[in-house]
């Protein structure tokens, strides 16, 4: 069992955990992930390591509650424990002195990109961060990003914070040289698949090296099953051992998109059951009971 040292929501449905995992903490490099299982009947899921403290033996995970497993996880508090944490897995981010690096984070992607952004800064790059979210309340880690970047551009879909627009709009301005004297040498983009795909298309005509971190479905995370296979440069690659970062201009985003949809029916069913069970356990009346009452006058 891996104990949770601290757990706090950063935004609705986005929770930051500090978990005791000394072996992982000692070896982890930016860009790597863990495979986590919440309990004995749980599935194995990949979560990027947002930070680690080798001295304290802890790792930080930032989790967005979307389906059953992540919502179940986000219901845990300090003092609880998760059944399994295996890692660090995947190739670490390729960090080098490129010049000016633009880090584009969409939603929880900001948390995933953050450690690599820090590493890029430490490597002597000028780091421009674009942080995007649907609205103000869904922005995370803005202070942390500001503290470690040379410039930060906050973008919200609805304009409730920063500038109104998609992160790609700001990136477009940057690559076209329309933001002061900024020029772009390297881009790292992490976020929803449509966002990463859009980023690739913004930088492709300008020939700017662009890296994305793929969120494929995984089971073991060690290269043993091939469930996470993606098509890169027309050939099969495993996101868990060849990635998770890949050249954005070589990734077949169509394949990634449809492969990530493979279990939609099961995910929907699991989430519905989970929500129903949660609704019952919080004391609210069962809809079926209410219906029976209504129909039988009992």
């Amino acid at each position: 069992m891996f104990k949770i040292a601290s757990a706090q929501f950063l935004a609705p449905d986005i929770k930051r955990f500090v978990i005791e995992a000394p072996r992982v903490a000692r070896k982890r490099l930016a860009g790597q992930f863990v495979i986590l299982r919440v309990n004995e009947t749980g599935e194995r899921i990949p979560i990027t390591i947002a930070d680690s403290d080798p001295g304290a033996g802890t790792i930080t995970l930032i989790v967005q509650g979307i389906g059953k497993t992540t919502k179940l996880l986000n219901g845990l508090e300090a003092g609880d424990a998760v059944a399994n944490v295996a890692g660090p897995l995947g190739k670490p981010s390729h960090v080098d002195k490129f010049g000016t690096v633009v880090v584009v984070g969409g939603g929880v992607g900001t948390a995933i990109a953050y450690p690599t952004a820090v590493a890029m800064k430490q490597a002597g790059n000028r780091v421009l961060s674009i942080v995007g979210a649907r609205s103000k309340e869904l922005l995370i880690l803005v202070d942390e990003v500001e503290a470690t970047s040379d410039r930060v551009f906050v973008m919200t879909d609805d304009g409730t914070a920063g500038e109104k627009g998609f992160v790609t709009a700001k990136l477009q301005e940057l690559v076209e040289g329309r933001v002061d004297d900024e020029k772009v040498d390297h881009v790292l983009a992490i976020g929803p698949v449509p966002m990463m795909r859009a980023v690739a298309e913004v930088t492709r005509p300008h020939g700017i090296p662009t890296v994305v971190s793929l969120n494929s479905i995984m089971v073991d995370g060690t290269g043993m099953c091939g469930g996470c296979r993606v098509i890169v440069n027309g050939k099969s690659a495993f996101a868990c051992v060849d990635g998770p970062e890949f050249d954005a201009h070589a990734v077949d985003f169509d394949v990634l998109t449809y492969r990530n949809r493979m279990y939609l029916p099961q995910e929907k069913e699991a989430l519905e059951r989970f929500e129903q069970a949660r609704a019952h356990s919080d004391g609210s009346p069962c809809k079926l009971d209410q219906l029976i009452e209504k129909n039988t006058g009992a």
Binding site: E43, M224, C225
Partner: peptide, 21 residues
Amino acid sequence: NEFLTRVNLMKAYAFPNYDEP
């Protein structure tokens, strides 16, 4: 490997009592 791991190790045959699909 994937097919059998999901079913044997992760007991996907018992979904949704087990979460791995």
